[in-house]
Simulated assay, not measured.
Amino acid sequence: MLTQWNQLRNDGTLRSRAINAENPTGAPGSAGSASSLLGPGRKGSAWYQLPAGESVTLADISGPGVIRHIWMTVTDKSPAGPFVLRDVVLRAYWDGSAHPSVEVPLGDFFCNGFGERTLVTSEPIVVAPTGGMNSYFPMPFRAGARIELRSEHAGDLEHIFFQIDYTTGDDFDQWPGYFHAQWRRSNGTTAPGEDHVIVDGVVGSGCYVGTYVALASLHRYWWGEGEVKFYVDDDTDLPTLCSAGLEDYAGGAWAFQDALRAEPEPNTLTFSAPYFGYPFSSATDRTKASEFSTPMLAMHGLYRWHLPDPVYFQGKLRVAVQQIGAWDHGLFERSDDISTTAYWYQTTVNARFAALPPAARRAPR
């Protein structure tokens, strides 16, 4: 998928464009025109502001194209409190749709759940020091695209830095489908034996390309024995695909072993790889929002990109993960605080998602 839309070809039809605060429309020959104290064209409009309770449109593009790269950075806390990365929502709309195809808390989209920054080094998502969030998911559109941020944070955000790089003139003879991403949470509310639903209600044809999981452990012992299950097309009670366990799904093994140690700081076994990773593990609230931040619930962030091995579907798709733990006496059912982001493509814009919970119900435990 990424290779298809990132070929280094120049057949005379492709044009490169970029939208940021220095060129809000992406128009050719129009970047960097604002004046500063240094004079015209000298970094005069480097950011947007985002007042509490309001939205800001980052890009509003007319005509066909492909978003190739999104770079963004915001503060992860403000004088009004932490959790900016959960309080701000990223939305993307394709081809004039009235509802978004991407609706995810900003941090979670970039594999930074819990309202905390962590470094991520993978093929489609990179989070670099200090909070430079990058997406390389290609996002094609036929008639237009709109990307916005909505703040439900209690305080104003003074600096929204961003850049959206895209192309026009792309060949859509082999249409890959519209990019989608959705966030869901089971906040310790599922009954024992009830799976957390990662995504459901996907109707049409397409391919599933990735999952991010942010899990706060609400029970003792090992938390990741549950299998990730893909119900494809005509599947009913049983899925066509399932993993051997959550850490196995994320490319690890044997419960990450030393990751179970009760350390106040993140352990050394966290890792990022091109297609899978376990970049975050902590029992300390690094937002430092409270003097009571240590100790606390163990938090775990992991991702898996199905880019070399997409999960294809022709009619419908449902993805879920079991909440199963393990200890010396065997397996047991759990109900943890688990938030997930699903990433997929489909040939049509999917139906409207269920309403995103408000910021108070998205706040990390």
Rank of each mutant, 00 (worst) to 15 (best):
Y275P: 02
G32Q: 12
F137N: 08
V74G: 04
Y278F: 15
P79G: 02
A250I: 04
V127H: 02
C242A: 12
P140A: 11
S151K: 12
V126M: 14
T121K: 15
A298I: 06
L58P: 05
Q182R: 15
G144Y: 10
G29D: 12
Y275K: 04
L149M: 06
Q346N: 05
G29R: 09
R9T: 15
R362N: 06
L157S: 07
D171R: 10
D309G: 03
W183D: 04
D165H: 12
S186D: 15
G251K: 05
Y208A: 01
Y136N: 14
A21E: 06
G107A: 06
L331D: 05
A46Q: 13
T294E: 10
V202G: 02
G96E: 08
N267S: 10
A154C: 08
V74M: 15
F292P: 00
A34Q: 14
H219K: 07
S186Q: 13
H219N: 07
P295V: 03
T75V: 13
C207Q: 14
T167Q: 14
L218D: 04
A181V: 01
T73Y: 03
G81H: 11
P28R: 11
N187C: 10
P105M: 02
A250V: 02
Q257F: 10
P274A: 03
H219L: 03
V197N: 01
T268E: 12
Q4V: 05
S35Q: 11
G132R: 13
F353Y: 14
T340L: 00
G115H: 07
T118Y: 04
D60S: 14
F256V: 10
S62G: 07
T294C: 03
F276S: 15
N6F: 04
M299Q: 15
Q322G: 00
L2W: 02
A359T: 14
F271T: 06
V74T: 14
T236Y: 08
M296G: 15
H153F: 08
V120T: 08
D237F: 14
A216T: 13
Y48F: 10
T341P: 02
V349I: 14
I147C: 10
V120C: 05
D87E: 10
R142Y: 08
A34G: 08
I147M: 15
T3I: 09
V89F: 00
S335L: 01
E116R: 13
H196N: 00
E103G: 03
N10L: 09
W223Q: 09
L85Q: 08
R334E: 00
P51E: 00
F162V: 05
T118V: 09
Y212P: 02
V84C: 03
T121C: 09
H329N: 12
S281M: 13
S16F: 13
P51W: 02
P266N: 01
Y93E: 06
R352F: 00
T189C: 07
D76N: 14
V56E: 05
A52Y: 04
A92P: 03
F230P: 01
L8E: 12
I147D: 11
G44V: 02
Y166D: 11
K316R: 15
